[in-house]
Structures are given as structure tokens and as C-alpha cells.
């Protein structure tokens, strides 16, 4: 499914956080959203999942089309959030077992027989590259997992709701290189049937796994996308001055 963002602006009171954001996220591609801290990258992700307007009280203007329909008017919140999944920077593990965590979201959307639930847990943990490490303790508390494992569990939990689009807010920023590598492999595999918008500070990660890059800057006020292109266009031959300076200093 395709996601089209047209002239998206987000305001906190009268202050604009981001303005006139337009881009599209095509099927089977990973788009990296990069830029300095405070430019509004997370705000954009939270707007696409409607956390910004519904939970944080921000005002969102513009149009976001998912499957050709406006997300603000044509979808219920539950349906939208199930189809546009969001994985946060800090992995959040709910109290209870690994098994329960994987099913945490989906069991609120549909009832599953025990065998269906078992299969789903196994398949999601495999997709998240976690099955091998936890298959003998899926009924044990998820709290004992390492940070990297918790993040992969968060992926498994989001994937269990079968989203078409994944929004990832710096999912590897607090992880070690091994866990980061594991998650990048997961993303490359997920790309086969999902669209992924990835906010990252790790430029090398953007180079390694993304197909296109959006550079956002807030040097002139609210965050704006100042440059967009393929990985080689943006990383090797940036045209915008702010993009150049950012990459030179990173």
C-alpha cells in the first residue's frame, strides 16, 4: 500500500513544528527520514499514526492518503493504527510473558484460537529474528530480555497486527552493533511486503538499508523537507547546503 503525504503541517498552539511536508512512501521501499534533532522527524511519524493529534493535542493540517483515502476522515483510529504500525525508539515491554507481548495488540482486534495464537507468535518471533533466542522461554517474563531483544519483541508485537506500513522512530539508537545488524536484517526482509518509513540518526544505516532519503531541516523555523532523493544522490552528492553541512559534521 502507498502512503502519500501532502502539505502536512503540525502546530503546537500557534507555533508550527513542521510545515508543508510532502512525500510519498511506495510499496516495498524503505525511506529514511534524516535530519538534526528537534527538526520534527518524530512529530511527522506520530502524525501519520495519529498519535500527534489524538494523544498529544497537536493540530495537524494537510492531507495524508493511505490506500488513496484520507487517514483523518476515512479510517477509524483502531483500523488506521493497526494498518500503520509505529515502533518507538525505546522498546516498551508490557508486563507478562513474551508470548503475551506478541499477542498484546492483535488480541484486541480479533479472537484467536490457541493453535492460531501459537502459530502467530512463532511466525512473528521468527520474522523479528527472535525465535531462535527465546523459543524455550516464550512463556517467561519479557522483562528479562536484553534491550535489543526487547526492541525485536516490539517489532514482533507490531507485526502481529499485520500493518502495511511501518513507521520506525530510531529503532536502533540505543542498541549495540549486533542488535542493530539483526534489526536491519529484519527490515530488509520486511521490505518485501511492507513500506517502511525510518527515522534514523545513523547515516550509515540510512545508506545500508534505505532506498530513498528525505532530509529535514529546521534552521529557518519549523521543520521542512529541504532535499529528497536516492541514497547516492543525497549521501554522495547533496545539493542543498544544509544537507551538505549536516553530513560533513556527522
Amino acid at each position: 500500500m502507498e502512503l502519500k503525504v501532502k502539505n502536512l503541517s503540525v502546530l503546537s498552539g500557534k507555533e508550527q513544528i513542521v510545515k508543508n511536508i510532502s512525500f510519498s512512501l511506495n510499496e516495498n521501499e524503505i525511506v529514511a527520514l534524516v535530519g538534526p534533532s528537534g527538526a520534527g522527524k518524530s512529530t511527522i511519524l506520530r502524525s501519520l499514526n495519529r498519535l500527534a493529534d489524538k494523544e498529544s493535542g497537536l493540530k495537524v493540517e494537510g492531507e495524508v492518503l493511505y490506500d488513496g483515502k484520507n487517514i483523518f476522515t476515512s479510517y477509524s483510529l483502531n483500523e488506521l493504527r493497526r494498518k500503520i504500525g509505529l515502533v518507538f525508539q525505546k522498546p516498551c515491554v508490557f508486563p507478562g510473558s513474551i508470548y503475551k507481548n506478541v499477542l498484546f495488540g492483535i488480541r484486541h482486534h480479533k479472537s484467536l484460537k490457541k493453535s492460531e495464537a501459537d502459530d502467530l507468535v512463532e511466525s512473528m518471533l521468527k520474522k523479528s529474528h527472535l525465535w531462535r533466542e527465546v523459543k524455550d522461554r516464550i512463556y517467561k517474563s519479557a522483562n528479562i530480555l536484553s534491550l535489543g531483544q526487547k526492541q525485536r519483541l516490539a517489532f514482533a508485537r507490531t507485526l502481529a497486527t499485520d500493518p502495511d506500513i511501518l513507521l520506525l522512530d530510531e529503532p536502533t539508537s540505543s542498541l549495540d552493533p549486533y542488535s542493530t545488524h539483526e534489526i536491519e536484517q529484519v527490515l530488509l526482509e520486511l521490505k518485501q511486503n511492507k513500506s517502511i518509513l525510518l527515522v534514523t540518526h545513523l547515516l550509515q544505516q540510512g545508506k545500508r538499508i534505505s532506498d530513498r532519503v528525505l532530509f529535514i531541516s529546521s534552521s529557518n523555523g519549523p521543520g521542512e523537507i529541504v532535499e529528497e532523493g536516492t541514497v547516492s544522490e543525497i549521501f554522495d552528492n547533496p545539493k542543498n547546503n544544509e544537507t551538505k553541512i549536516y553530513f560533513q559534521n556527522s
Binding site: E55, N78, R81, R82, L86, K90, F104, T161
Partner: peptide, 27 residues
């Protein structure tokens, strides 16, 4: 309760009442 818990649950498509019963009250 950390805000992350509630937002993570909501981002999975849980309704407000489901968040209250699955996250807020048990926590």
C-alpha cells in the same frame, strides 16, 4: 505509569477503554 506504555498500546490500535483495562489498571 510511563507514558511510553500508554502510547505503545495506543499505537497498536487499542481503544481508550482497552488501554485502561489492559495497561492502566493492571499497572
Amino acid at each position: 505509569i510511563p507514558k511510553d506504555y500508554i502510547e505503545s498500546a495506543k499505537s497498536l490500535g487499542l481503544s481508550s477503554s482497552a488501554v485502561i483495562f489492559s495497561v492502566v489498571l493492571p499497572q
